[in-house]
Design a protein around this nucleic acid. Sequence first.
DNA 1: CAACTGACAGACTTGCAATTCTGTCAGTCG
DNA 2: CGACTGACAGAATTGCAAGTCTGTCAGTTG
Lengths: 192, 192
Amino acid sequence: MNEVLTRERILEAAEQVFRRFGPHKTTVVDVARLLGVSHGSVYRHFDSKIALRDAVVEGWLKRTSDPLAAIATSGEAPAKRLRLWFSTLLKLKREKVKSDPELFSVSRTIFAEAREVVARHVDTLVGQLEIIIGDGIASGDFRPVDPRATAQAMFDATARFHDPAHGAEWSAPDVDAGFDRVYALVTAGIVA
Amino acid sequence: MNEVLTRERILEAAEQVFRRFGPHKTTVVDVARLLGVSHGSVYRHFDSKIALRDAVVEGWLKRTSDPLAAIATSGEAPAKRLRLWFSTLLKLKREKVKSDPELFSVSRTIFAEAREVVARHVDTLVGQLEIIIGDGIASGDFRPVDPRATAQAMFDATARFHDPAHGAEWSAPDVDAGFDRVYALVTAGIVA
DNA sequence: CAACTGACAGACTTGCAATTCTGTCAGTCG
DNA sequence: CGACTGACAGAATTGCAAGTCTGTCAGTTG
């Protein structure tokens, strides 16, 4: 209340309110109220409600990409690292559906609206895959494929198992078997 | 008007009205009116509006699976046949989004609500892929993989390019390149 | 008597008045 | 003078009254 109003404090409050009321019900006035300021003050730090929402989504997505970055740049053998990267991605995504299915289903809409932020996130993830594949080629574990194109293709090929658009299918009992089949197929194409 | 009222005539009329007013706006009374009967008569042939809608969608999906069946059982070389099958699948799906986005969007709703119709359709398609892959193994063009599991994996791996949940992404300019990358990756794993 | 109608109850949808929200900006405060 | 407020216009959303639809069934028709 009596501290300086910063971008960070607003983001923190916004996330708290998003979580409580859901992103669509949340108003700028709600966020301002939690901070004990008028909503006009929020507009000194964010150009629009959309800018604020995008910033919150960005932070939220970062919580997925950061642990994956650690895996991508670890010293683990590329084949093992690749498998761990994917299983962690699926684990993180599924935890999100389970822990808050309501927020997850709303997040699908939010993602569709915040295309740019999500595109950047996907780019980050594909970049991480590219590093693993590049390392695998260098070590001779993978065939000399184009790392960027292959990273993109692997990400797209596994979309059914990590894209929020398919979230409803993840509770089926045979999803794990389905992913294993796809993973076996796509890695069959790159292992030396 | 003066002919006997059959399931087929109702389906025909229903499809016509669906196409004209959009499936959400269409009422059972609209369908009955086009046939010159009361809506009560429609209920002699279909248990509910949902049953009628499902039957219409079933016929619609058949228009995708029938031409694909012809390709799957053609005498073409398996590798070429596989490629043709997929490019036809994508072409048909994209035509549907373009020519009738309203009807297309309802099929998305049906995915969540009445899974049975769609599940049967997907089973049919995977079965067709299985035939092509089986033929390819017999001819020595493909490695001796499990045809059913591989068919399922190929279908899942290409979901982003044919699953209605991703329909909005198909208008992007780089989708074709994206599909080519994924196709190259998954076939790299099976060609002998 | 089989094929059909149309009135009906309750579920669902629509339109729109009332309310609430966003984004601005002239004005206050320390 | 820079951080902040709050009244305001127009956009967006909500709630709910009025209207429409689904599914049924007793009654009509050829």
